[in-house]
Nucleic acid binder design. Sequence first.
RNA 1: GGGCGGAUAGUUCAGCGGUAGAACACCUGCUUUACACGCAGGGGGUCGUAGGUUCGAACCCUGCUUCGCCCACCA
Length: 891
Amino acid sequence: MTTRKRNRNLDKNYSPDNIEQKWYAQWLEHGLFNAEINPEAKAFSIVIPPPNVTGSLHVGHAFDHTFQDIMCRTKRMEGYSVLWLPGTDHAGIATQNVVEKALAKQGISRYDLGREEFVKRVWEWKAEYGSRIINQMKRLGNSCDWRRERFTLDDGLSKAVRAVFVRLYKKGLIYRGKYIVNWCPRCATAISDLEVEYEESQGNFYYVKYPLVEKDCGEKYILVATTRPETIIGDVAIAVHPRSEKYKHLIGKHVIVPLANRVIPIIEDNMVDPEFGTGCVKITPAHDPNDFLVGLNHNLEQIQVIDSRGIMNENAGKYKGMTIEQARRESVKDLEELGQLLKTEQITHSVGHCQRCGTTVEPYLSEQWFVKTKPLADRGVQAVKDGRIRWVPEQWEKTYFNWMENIRDWCISRQLWWGHRIPAWECKDCGHITVAEVDPTECEHCHSKNIEQESDVLDTWFSSALWPFSTMGWPEDKPELKYFYPTSLMVTGFDIIFFWVARMIMMGLEFMDDVPFRDVYIHSLIRDEHGKKMSKTKGNVIDPLVMIEQYGADALRMTLAALSVQGRDILLSSTRIETYRFFMNKLWNASRFALMNLDDEVREIDAEQLHLHDKFILTRTQEVAKRTRELIDSYDIGTAARGLYDFVWGDLCDWYLEMSKPALKGDEGEARKATTQGVLEEVFRTTLPLLHPFIPFVTEELWAAFGFNGDYIMRTSWPDAKDEYTFAGVVEEMSVLQDAVRALRNLRAEAHVPPQQKLSRAVIRAVKDSSAAKILGASLNQIENLCRVSEVVLEAPADEWTHGPSLSGMSGEAEVRLPVGDVLDVEKEIARLTQEVANIEKAVASSQARLDKPSFVERAPAEVVEKERGKVAEGQAQIARLKANLESLSR
RNA sequence: GGGCGGAUAGUUCAGCGGUAGAACACCUGCUUUACACGCAGGGGGUCGUAGGUUCGAACCCUGCUUCGCCCACCA
């Protein structure tokens, strides 16, 4: 005889306080999150998208992490050796900004401190605040292997960054050069194309006259339209389209630059759109990316007039020292006074802003480091085309291809202090650049000791791109890499597909010669209840930690899981979380009910003693176990979570628990009671593990209360569907009973019979010997129980019976007459079925006709043909079922 | 300019070829011995629009209207 140590003293209401922290501490203590290399087991691994160290957990993280935790916990229960590797990102520019802001409050700038001291301060900041987000992740219940926590700037990862940089450089895939880049004057650093956010804004379009030097061309001047008059002073040419009828004759002639009194040539270039503006473009190679390219093609001078802080420099003449805006106003004023401004128009154009600080981005000519991305991207595209990486949902594949196929070189140098310093040393004697993994002491070319390290650091995303393998010990040959790489799954938002996902794919293929992950799941954005993006300024931010305090981590997790749908934003509000908080209580009380009715002794289920509702709940439990696993495997956690919710609240609580009460009270005898107890045991023992990945804390608590095995639910195997508890047809049979009960309750409510009043008698009319009559006949006592009727009888429909429910004789002896199921208008039902059979037959015939055409079978894709065959088979099965029904009706 | 997604009950969304669903909100009635964080019942939708395919369309195709997102260009 098996016994369990039950805890029957659960509080009346579920309270997540204490429970969540208690179990998390125990899981950690027993190393349940630890990933072990186990050759006997299959590996499942996820590296967490590392949040910024300075950050705080927001609801987007909470969703991302809940998803990953559900996957990891499920896979663990399925017997995989699971690694969920956590960590944080040093987030170069973001972190530097945060610390700079804090210093600014004390009136200190980073330049006051100097590089070394400033970086020291950032590390101090990290030491103080860096664990905050980690602790928040723990509150959510993340089952990460915290022993393996990494930071993108720790020693191991720094080593990986250097190795990658040096190898790419030696391969010619990293180069240095003077190019025009996106520059944030406030951050005083270059940023990549991706870090620029464009916004439509109103601006002025100034039409400026450039006097022609040659007097013999008809016109006196040519007209150039520009939005940036402050850069006129840096103009080095005017470009027109080579086939422009209007300006062809001016090519090779010269104009005088207004405000600068320089003579510059008129050149031809295809870049000019003859339809836009005046058809003439001023070329300022130092301050416009297109002009820069034109300048290279025509070998033009690059005159820089704006410095790195957005101030006009010594080349700007009288405008020197002004800000860009001041210089613009002054230039316009001067042009006007000189009579060289023809007109000003309003124009909407998009202006780039720094992603981090919102400052208008300037195109800026400077010495920078770049990754030549084309060869890396080609392999990245191939990997997806070959199916070595699968995008979920598939649609993102297109976005990825589009970007990868048009990829531009990646500017990786940042003029910051916080980050991986570029491992390049310039020789002050011969100018040679030595790039090395270990700090060199001399120039590798002339052996001079007079060398100096590059002051720039790398783009944060450079180290993030290595995350899947750098965190596992690369470049060393670690067993982790063999066992857990490629990782199984990457879960992240679409906003960092280019920043991160694409780059991980490129780097993984280059350095590991394999993809970084098999599947990449792209989830949607979390918005507020009205579909607005959450932002602090709008005040609509839902703080996951406040939600955890208020409703518990389980409720938040269940909400996020249940709301998740592929390819659509998720709208979250606290009332939604409340709904799932109520679900926790429902589950808690259902368990409490079961515990109150279970002894320590485990009762056997006697198959002979099973009633319809017992078979029903056992069957549904097996179905849900199977279905939930399938859904999680296909990353559809939303449907899985909603399915579990409906099962627990509907099938289990509303129906089964109510129907089990008479037996548990002993009204049906000892054998029935024992078997019902057995069923309860079985159902909860199966259901709690299914819920565990979603709501780990409460399920662990309940698992312990049931005393199922003295071990953690976390370590329990995923329940497989059991054949012995799967009964064919019972769900359909049960629905006949459910319909009868609902119809009777409906009658009561409509007749305003008070709930507490017991009806003395209800009559259910059903065709004698029909399947419905058999089902109902066997469950009359259940109908009495569920509908509060003293006596329910089953009678054949009287001849005069028409249709529709009715209630009569309300005083004292109440009687309910009730039509149910296949009982009523037999002829009408026969007609309906006959019609349906005819329809399906037609459908089957048309499918069959398609299949009979050789051209269809040969040419159509196999799956389409398969689907057509399926339709025929399904249709025929349906016809058979309907005909059987028809036959039983006709008797 | 290129691409993607949405338009279904008052609200937020499931459903994606076979009798319109959930949650919240609303209405009616209930301290029914697990749960008022609850129970039972109810009202409410010509599934954006016009065509087409089909025996059958919220679902597939085409056009339109409308909202949102991404990429590129913007002298």
